[in-house]
Amino acid sequence: MSTPVAVTDDTFTEEVLNSELPVVLDIWATWCGPCKRVAPILDQLAGEYAGRVVIAKLDADANPATVMDAGVTSIPTMNFYKNGRLVDTLIGAHPKPVIAEKIEGLLA
């Protein structure tokens, strides 16, 4: 079973933009209640989409440069990347079917 990959300001380009697979980047913080609700869903999806999509997590407090570059103003924010480009965004806590539908869009 696959688990989410931890991403930092230093590894963002390599892990997200240069990834050969589509990437879902969860931008979260330890104090964020909605982030805690989304975390187990992303853990499940990491296993279900292993080998097809990378689920990555970026701690917003510890990585302000990437957060600012991405224009994130609210968390959780899930950015969806394909071929090194941001193609979609979900802001806030969403149920598993909504997130899975966005992932399926990455694979289309």
Rank of each mutant, 00 (worst) to 15 (best):
V24Q: 05
A46C: 08
V23D: 07
A50H: 08
K96H: 07
V16M: 03
L106I: 10
K82Q: 14
T77G: 02
T11P: 04
L17D: 02
K82M: 11
I27Y: 00
A60M: 06
L106P: 03
T77K: 00
V98I: 12
I75C: 06
A60R: 00
P97Q: 07
T66M: 06
D69H: 07
D43R: 08
G105E: 14
K96A: 12
L90Q: 13
T30N: 11
I27M: 09
Y49A: 03
D10R: 13
M78G: 05
E15L: 15
I99N: 00
K82T: 11
E104Q: 15
M68G: 03
T11N: 06
A6T: 15
P97M: 09
V16H: 01
L86Y: 08
L42A: 03
D88T: 12
H94E: 12
W28D: 04
I99T: 00
G71H: 09
G84P: 08
C35H: 00
I99M: 01
S2G: 11
A6C: 07
P97C: 07
V24C: 09
P95W: 10
I91C: 06
H94S: 12
Q44D: 15
L42C: 05
Q44I: 12
P76Y: 06
S19W: 06
P4F: 05
T77P: 05
E101Q: 15
V87P: 09
P97T: 09
P64L: 05
T89H: 04
I91W: 06
I55T: 01
C35F: 03
R37Q: 15
L86E: 13
Y49S: 05
P34S: 02
T66A: 09
I41D: 01
K82G: 10
L106Q: 03
A108S: 14
V5T: 15
G71N: 13
C32W: 03
T73H: 14
I103V: 11
A56V: 09
A62Y: 00
G47W: 08
N83H: 15
D61H: 00
V23N: 07
M68C: 01
R52C: 06
L58K: 00
G51E: 08
Y81L: 07
N83M: 12
L21P: 08
L45P: 09
T73G: 15
T66N: 04
T77V: 06
P76K: 04
L106H: 07
